[in-house]
Structures are given as C-alpha cells and as structure tokens.
C-alpha cells in the first residue's frame, strides 16, 4: 500500500504539464487544416495523416536533426534594426521555412518522405515565429536570450506586497494564458469563434510582412520586459489577448501558405 502511494505521488510530480502546453499550437494547426482549400486538405491528409502531436514537435526530434543538422537557433526569428529578416544562414526560422516551402511547392518531384519532413518543418517553425519570446531583434540585446523580470500579481489573494518572479519565455509563449485543461480540439473551436469571418484579413501579406508584424509586437513588449525590470501587473495581464491573437494569426498564415501551393 505504501509503495503504491509513493509511486503515484512520484508520477504526479514528474509528469510535467507537457500535454497541455502545446494545446494552443495543436489548435492552431487543426484550425489551419480546416481553413484550407479542398486540394490542400487532400495534400495534407496524404502526407501528414491525422495526428498533429509529432508534427508540432518534429523539429525538436532526433530524426529532424539527422536530416538537416541544426542547433536550437532554428526556432528563432532573427530580425535586424528595421524588423527585416536577417539571413543568419541555415539556423534561422525564416530561412528554414522558405527552404522547406520550396520543397513542398515542388512536391511532385520529391519523394513522399522528403515532402512530409518539409511540411512538418513549415508547420513547426510557422508556429514558433508567432511566439514573441522566439523573436531575436538585433538592436535589443536582451531579446537574444531568456531573462526573468518581476511583477506585482494582484490576483494572489491577500499576499502582502510581494513581487512575483517570472520568465520572458513563459510569458511570450502563453498563448492567451487562460486555464489549462483545454484540449487541442476545444481550443480550435474557441479560435474559430474568435476568428469569425476575419480569415481574409488575418491571412494577408507575405512571410516577410508577417515577420515584421510579429517583430513590431515583440519590440513593443521588449521595451517594458527587461532583465530584472519591475513590470506593472496591468501590463502583464494585457499581453494575454495579444499572444492569443498571434496564435490565431499563426494558423491563418499557415493556411495561406498551404493554399498558396495550389493557387
């Protein structure tokens, strides 16, 4: 009896909240596949099959590293002073997406496995560049790595005036920061309501515009969120709607890319 108790306590503490963390990224991909034209849907079904879990985490997997040796920097979008993509070589999300899209566009002349890998790279990195924590801006030094800041959380009951410690990467990736427990499917339904009939407006522009747009939002918040800065809690709360909106944009723009193949 005692052993079981200890074991279950251990299981509970070890299991990180991983499954929930990607529910919004997963929802973005589900929403994208619903907004694309029938030809693209057939194309995705043929190459990707049904589940998206491993598609979203593909670029982190060992298999991806063997094919295209890369390091952690590939998840990040490197922008220069006036928010244009800096060509930093192969370890940059923008460059990787463009290369993968060429393969996907010429899918007839490539084998099935090559196209599948390219498609999953596009999916994973398109979601990554829409996290403001993954955007590296040249003239903002503290955007080059994660840092921690302090804020005053008013929601924690009567706690005496204590400043909370938090990390920029956690805030930059919280996709709306609303309660856990949303499955990918249910969050996708939530996003469809949020999107309404604004698909055309959200999926306008080219990859370069999207990078500049995300860079502008990131630069705006990086001006307040700095290492050891003391941020007001109202600003801290008002980032949630913006990060949510970015995740919806990620899915619409991904859909626009996939539609572009069959234009």
């Amino acid at each position: 009896m005692k052993k079981i108790l200890l074991f279950s306590a251990f299981v509970l503490s070890v299991l990180t909240a991983n499954a929930w963390a990607i529910s919004s990224e997963e929802a973005a991909v589900i929403l994208a596949t619903r907004n694309i034209c029938p030809k693209a849907q057939k194309f995705v079904k043929k190459y990707l099959g049904k589940t998206f879990d491993d598609d979203i985490r593909y670029i982190y997997s060992k298999e991806a590293r063997q094919i295209v040796p890369h390091n952690r920097e590939i998840h990040y979008l490197h922008l220069d002073k006036n928010l244009q993509p800096m060509n930093v070589g192969k370890n940059d999300a923008y460059v990787a997406i463009e290369k993968a899209m060429e393969v996907v566009r010429a899918y007839k002349s490539h084998s099935k496995i090559v196209v599948t890998r390219a498609l999953r790279t596009v999916i994973c990195l398109m979601v990554d560049i829409h996290h403001i924590a993954n955007i590296r801006i040249e003239n903002i030094p503290h955007s080059q790595r994660d840092f921690s800041y302090k804020y005053h959380s008013t929601e924690v009951g009567k706690k005496k005036d204590k400043l909370e410690e938090a990390n920029w990467s956690k805030l930059g990736k919280n996709c709306g920061g609303y309660p856990r427990g949303f499955s990918g499917e249910w969050r996708a339904y939530d996003m469809t309501i949020y999107l309404g009939d604004r698909f055309a407006e959200y999926s306008k522009g080219t990859l370069k515009d999207w990078a500049a747009d995300n860079g502008a939002i990131a630069a705006r918040y990086l001006a307040i969120y700095k290492p050891n800065a003391v941020v007001s809690c109202l600003d801290h709360k008002y980032t949630d709607p913006v990060t949510y909106d970015l995740m919806v944009k990620a899915s619409c723009r991904l859909a626009a890319l996939l539609n572009g193949i069959f234009k």
């Binding site: 005053h152 008013t154 005036d161 307040i224 700095k226 003391v230 941020v231 007001s232 809690c233 600003d235």
Partner: peptide
C-alpha cells in the same frame, strides 16, 4: 499594486 516605485509602466 499596479503602479509602484520603479515600476515600468506603459501609457495605456
């Protein structure tokens, strides 16, 4: 709790 010594605050 929102605006306090050395807080970094946006105009909004």
């Amino acid at each position: 709790k929102v605006i306090y010594p050395e807080a970094e605050v946006t105009n909004e």
